[in-house]
Amino acid sequence: MATDTPAPSPPSESTQTPGRLEQSNPDYDPNVVIEAQNLTKIYRDFWGRQKVRALNALDLEVRKGEIFGLLGPNGSGKSTTIKLMLGLLFPTSGRAIVLGQNATDVAKNERIGYLPEESYLYKFLNAEETLDFYGRLFDIPAKVRKERVQELIQLVGLEKAKRRQLREYSKGMTRRIGLAQALINDPELILLDEPTSGLDPLGTRDMKDMILKLRDQGKTVVMCSHLLADVEDVCDRIAILFQGDLKEMGRVDSLLKVSGETQITAENIPESAHEEIRQLIAKHGGQNVVVDNPRTTLEDLFLNIVRESEDRPGMRPAGAAAEKKPSSDQTH
């Protein structure tokens, strides 16, 4: 099992009351937000026969202030892990400690926000009522609650639709209101189950920016996804699960670093200089040299086009994006 140094946690003073374990357990480390010990979950049928082993002896530690990604194909145990952390499922064996308290303890939920895989919300309520309802479940003064409802509606961009019942919402809108309800209590720990699923690229980008912003505010985010690009973009550390087993865990940058290869990027180098560079590298013993123009990602292209269009509505000449940055070269 791979381990790595966790991300340095920003020094933030917790204003919340410490959990019971925090007070009673001398080994309790306030920087560890989630701790799974030998966590196992076996699904059984009505007769108690084993149907599937969804999670197998998972040991995991999420530290304060990091974005932790759970990665894996469908059915690998990501959602099960999150549900165990939330107390929605009871572990078959092992235990999950969240914010110093047992995962089944209701009190921990005061400091948690959860966005489920699909936003499971009451379709007969409108956005304002939804947030107001969830807000009432916390010990927040009425005035603060009302302000926060409006703030969050603004934050997720649903001002125009706040009086419409959720049954009329598109999938993207439902995800947004789902995120807003997860943030209603200004939580310390946010658990996001497939946060970008069903969102358009713009929404995905917004969601990712939001996650990063939450991290910058000192909050801890745990997300699970099978969209690798999203995980790569935002996560500090990841764990890769496959069929209930933890296969890999560590910091994203060090896991993705390819040792033995060097990348040089420069602008405004003419084609004629390529051969010269190649020779120079060969002189130093470099092999498999590739000199060409780098490719942007489809996501960046799409976002550029959309943002430009917002500034300049109307027809846009095809291929304009390619012409925009013609002279950036890349060498491997």
Binding site: G87, N109, I112, L121, F138, Q181
Partner: peptide, 14 residues
């Protein structure tokens, strides 16, 4: 069935 209960029980609701 609709799993709306997920968003309720993950709040401090007993």
């Amino acid at each position: 069935k609709n799993k709306t209960i997920y968003t309720v029980v993950t709040k401090p609701v007993r």
